[in-house]
Amino acid sequence: MKSYIKLVNFEINRFIKIYLTLLIITLLSQFIGVIVIAKSKMDQAHEVMGEQNLSEQAYLHDYGGFTFAHFASTLWFVGPIALCIIALLFYCLMIWYRDWFGKNTFAYRLLMLPTARISLYFSKASAILLFIIGLLAFQLIILPLENTLFESLIQDNFLQTSMDVSSILQSNVMLGIILPPYFSDFLISYGIGMMFVFVLFTSILFERSFRLKGIVFGILYIIAAVLLYLSPLFILSNETYSVLYSEEIFAIFLVLGILITAASIVIGNWLISKRVLV
């Protein structure tokens, strides 16, 4: 347990520079975006009012005002979030491969630590989870600040509604997925996410253990896991009406999720303890 915590800390520190860079990019892009978008929206509105000779009231009647949702759908806002997601997905691979790359085989060191090797597996997964949650928390912190800034930049009359954080999150499909409105949904989303991380980790370990052959195993493992997880959908989609109650379908998904996660951990443990190559 102690070494697990140390390893998690170690993994976090190893990525912290890139991670902070991601946070700063998000911060800058979103704040600059707020200013740029708010200004351009106001300019546009005034331009239209000038061209069509509309009063403020007439303009608002015809075109409506602005809300933060207008900004939340722009690349300024969504771009850095997408970047963070891609970066973390990529890091799910790199968190393993960086230990093997180059002539510095840090993997030697890690695998020879006097601790159960599965700790390495868990520490890497935990680090990924913490990075994800950290990004979400960061977004939750800066969102109200961006909102305040946005509202201060838009002339009072042009602000259609003043949105709060949860409304903003629900106004945007992408945000609705990464920060769902219910905590239970949050747990489900990230539970499924972590299941995928475990599946991915195990398939990486297949590759690290059996190399070329392992790539095939790894890909097959991912396909098998995804198919297994989605199998209720294939079976149920044949029927227009579902024989199962929704709580039963949920239970099936839950059990499948736990099963796939457990299988990934068990196989991962076997691979990293017995099969992995340096």
């Binding site: 800390n9 976090i12 979400l136 928390a137 912190i141 905590f183």
Partner: peptide, 25 residues
């Protein structure tokens, strides 16, 4: 001291996300 970044990351995340969903609930 070496654990400070991790501690900050973990605590901030839990507090912020916890507060957000707690308040919503």
């Amino acid at each position: 001291k070496r654990y400070i970044t991790s501690i900050i990351l973990v605590c901030m995340s839990i507090v912020i996300i916890g507060t957000y969903y707690g308040k919503k609930m």
